[in-house]
Design a protein around this nucleic acid. Structure first.
Length: 815
DNA sequence: TTAGGGTTAG
């Protein structure tokens, strides 16, 4: 229905053609009766006109087509042209072509209609091909109607410029429709200046032409110039119409000018344009971009006619403002209204599912998209599905969809890299990034940098991260707030806090995100006081903290033993900023009390929680029990943990370690066999070091490294040396029931030691050696270790940022 | 009879 021109403004087709409808029904009945005798005939063309108007669905046209074929009328150019149009309105473009091919005396109307039929059904290349076929003929001439639709359809500029030549030859370039279409086409290919030259020289400009130029500048990211053209338009006394208004609403969104947008909304109401479906859709989009969700349902509910774009817009409005549940409600309403979702509906829907993290929705959404074959049709939806799987943590499905994409663009790669990085699989993210760099047709962009930098930060791969930094500087992206925040995070996590701070002060600090980053990385390195100072500065600059800010602060307090300050943060968050604590906030509090040895307080705190504590909360308590050696409390925490999440090997390891510390080996064996029965094994610990652009990974006891013998020899020497300096190994870290000698041996061959020695062997003296260890990832710190035993320097501990205390203890740096 | 310019995307 919506495709029919009479429905353009939402007027019912039935209303317009009630009389014709009656005629069509009578005619059909009489034809069906007479078909066997072959004595019926449509006599007057005016009857055909009425019959076409009576067609309300695809079947009507097919029926009428059959009748006209029987009567021999379908081949006449007059009737065929209408059939071509009617079939194309209902999306049956192949039937349009069939009708077209049957006509012997094709006139310009027939050709123009066929071209428009292709354009109407988005078959651009066929439209252009058909136009060139027409131009090559001598029996028909192109006219004012020929070029506008073809220019709209030009899928490559080469077609556009050759068509421009044809237009010049035919002398049609001053027709206002033709020239406007040229303006539109050149703008579409990014040649706004060329379009403007044509526009300027036009002897007469109608509103449509001004609209083409305004939208042209807007689409070329030049909203300011679009605004200037609008001013010129008003100066020349040309009135804004619904198209101008719809375009200008998008321009306001791009210019970040809500006030102007609202003034246009007033204009819309004053001039009765609010019932135009395009204008209302544009209003919804504008308010959504400004996050003004209050205005959105008002506009939507007042619409008389809603099309698929209206539904998509309101769904996207809530989806983009992190309100997936309301978005889904509108999706259900759309289904109740029997509006079929299209590709863009599903793009928004997959993002909603990603936000809701609802595994039940994932399969039905992916299944629906697959049935429609949309993944092969459009890259955006493929990227959406990858993102959906990645956000739910199902990275292997994301990878499968990614591999099967027929064409991958930069965003597909960025989405895959981000997907791995955000699921803690930084090494996989780096692998994808390296593959991407091998593809010479792809140019990594700002999104790529934002995707890979957190992965490097997570791995502690400072050198690789710095390479990205140099790329950022080359491309003048250092002022981009997303990129620079990632760089602050990278330098911060890798212990280069002074660099992080100087970068931080170069960034725009209007939102909480850069503040959260700088607070968090100081917290990670045990500089909780500094984190609190940054928080104070943030408040002084008038930036509103969010739940992440408080998470970073609580983490900082926890790592620095600032219990009172942590309690203060927890209180301020709720009372002053009305942020309800989540499980993560509770987890941080428990961790903070636990680390400070306040195990009873931590336990009581859990008991007082208004929600059911999850595995991370009990895990924090268990971790604290392990540090402070409280077996009884540890058992309590474990029983809750095993009940909540019996599949996480880490919980078993923690409890087993706790028993081991007290020499309660029967407890150790019990827990270990429990874990084995459930098919759980401890994640092997590994350490890595970056050397000569290569990351070397070491596992404890792994003898496969080519330098293993050399490393072992050097390690023996160092161990002997530090022992002679008075270092006693803390064998309580060895959680196996073996003799003390053997415990020392195990300790001496921990993966981080192997990596450090490899570093010593392969770098010149006084080089800073940076080790990354996977099992301490909850601290997310890189380990700066100064090897004092070899360098004969006593490190000033306060200057060694990002120091891994346990690592330093190994080599006697702290006694 | 046939035509241009507008709204939704990661």
């Amino acid at each position: 229905m919506q495709r029919l021109p009479v429905c353009k403004d939402g007027i019912s087709l039935d209303y317009l053609s009630r009389s014709s409808c009656y005629l069509f029904r009578c005619y059909s009945v009489s034809c069906t009766r007479n078909l066997g005798y072959g004595n019926h005939e449509i006599t007057r063309e005016i009857d055909v006109e009425g019959l076409f108007r009576a067609c309300t669905k695809s079947e009507d046209v097919k029926h009428l087509h059959a009748l006209l074929t029987v009567s021999g009328k379908a081949k006449s150019s007059f009737v065929a042209t209408r059939l071509i149009n009617m079939h194309s309105y209902f999306g049956n473009v192949s039937l349009s072509r069939y009708t077209f091919d049957q006509v012997l005396d094709k006139d310009s109307y027939t050709w123009n209609s066929m071209i428009s039929a292709y354009v109407r059904n988005r078959q651009s290349s066929k439209a252009v091909k058909c136009a060139f076929e027409m131009l090559s003929r001598t029996d028909v001439r192109p006219d004012f109607h020929t070029f506008p639709p073809v220019l709209k359809a030009c899928s490559a500029l080469i077609d556009g410029t050759s068509l421009h030549c044809c237009i010049l030859k035919s002398g049609l370039e001053w027709d206002v429709f033709v020239a406007s279409s040229l303006v539109h086409m050149y703008c579409r290919f990014g040649f706004a200046d060329r379009a403007y030259t044509i526009f300027k020289d036009m002897p007469f400009r109608d509103t449509g032409c001004w609209n083409s130029m305004i939208s042209g500048f807007f689409q070329n990211d030049n909203a300011k110039e679009a605004l200037r053209i609008l001013d010129d338009m008003i100066l020349e006394g040309v009135k804004m119409d619904s198209v101008t208004v719809a375009t200008m609403l998008s321009v306001c969104a791009q210019l970040n000018d809500l006030l102007r947008g609202m003034l246009i909304h007033l204009f819309v109401i004053k001039h009765g344009l609010e019932f135009n479906v395009f204008v209302s859709n544009a209003l919804i989009n504008m308010y959504a971009k400004f996050g003004e969700l209050k205005c959105v349902p008002n506009v939507f509910d007042h619409m008389h006619v809603r099309d698929i774009v209206s539904w998509n817009s309101i769904i996207a409005a809530y989806e983009q403002n992190n309100n997936p549940y309301v978005a889904i409600k509108f999706f259900h309403r759309m289904q109740v209204n029997k509006v079929q979702p299209d590709l863009l509906t599903l793009v928004s829907l997959s993002s909603c599912v990603a936000q809701m993290k609802d595994p039940l929705w994932v399969k039905s959404v992916h299944g629906f998209i697959t049935r429609k074959c949309w993944i092969t049709e459009d890259i955006v939806i493929g990227n959406g599905v990858i993102d959906m799987y990645a956000k739910l943590g199902i990275t292997d499905s994301a990878q499968k969809v990614f591999e099967r994409l027929p064409h991958k663009d930069v965003i597909s790669w960025n989405t895959m890299i981000t997907g791995y990085a955000q699921n803690g699989l930084a090494a996989a993210a780096v692998e994808v990034y390296n593959c991407m760099k091998e593809n010479k047709d792809l140019k990594p962009n700002q999104g790529t940098q934002v995707a890979i930098l957190p992965a490097y930060a997570h791995l502690g791969a400072l050198r690789d991260g710095m390479k990205v930094h140099s790329q950022v500087l080359k491309e003048n992206l250092e002022l981009d707030v997303f990129v620079s925040t990632c760089l602050v995070d990278l330098y911060g996590k890798c212990g280069r806090l002074s660099e992080a701070i100087s970068l931080f002060y170069q960034v725009s600090r209007e939102t909480s995100v850069p503040w959260n980053t700088i607070i968090s990385c100081h917290g990670l390195h045990g500089l909780g006081e500094t984190s609190l100072k940054f928080f104070e500065e943030m408040l002084n600059e008038g930036v509103k903290p969010d739940h992440v800010t408080f998470l970073s602060l609580l983490n900082a307090c926890s790592h620095s033993g600032l219990v009172d300050q942590g309690k203060w943060c927890f209180q301020v968050m709720q009372q002053e900023y009305e942020i309800m604590p989540t499980l993560k906030h509770y987890g941080c509090m428990v961790d903070m009390f636990g680390r400070a040895g306040l195990l009873e307080t931590a336990y009581n705190f859990i008991e007082s929680m208004p929600m059911k504590p999850d595995a991370s909360v009990w895990g924090a308590l268990l971790g604290a029990c392990r540090i402070h050696g409280n077996v009884e409390m540890g058992r309590k925490a474990s029983s809750h943990l095993f009940e909540l999440d019996s599949q996480d090997a880490g919980h078993y390891v923690l409890l087993s370690n706790l028993y081991a510390n007290f020499g309660r080996w029967e407890g150790v064996n019990e827990v270990r066999s429990l874990a084995r029965d459930r098919g759980l094994w401890k994640t092997p610990g590994w350490s890595s070091i970056e050397l000569n652009n290569k990351i070397e990974v070491f596992y404890s006891g792994n003898q496969s490294h080519p330098q293993y013998e050399k490393i072992l020899e050097e390690l023996g020497k160092i161990n002997a040396k530090i022992k002679s300096l008075g270092y006693t190994p803390d064998t309580s870290f060895v959680l196996q029931d073996v003799e003390v000698d053997e415990k020392e041996n195990i300790l001496a061959h921990h993966s981080e030691r192997l990596a450090i020695v490899f570093g010593i062997l392969n770098t010149p003296p006084k080089t800073c050696i940076r080790i990354y260890k996977n099992l301490r990832s909850e601290l997310k710190i890189s380990i700066d270790i100064i090897i004092c035993s070899r360098r004969k320097e006593v490190p000033d501990i306060s200057s060694v940022r990002g120091m891994h205390v346990q690592g330093l203890a190994y080599f006697g740096a702290v006694s």
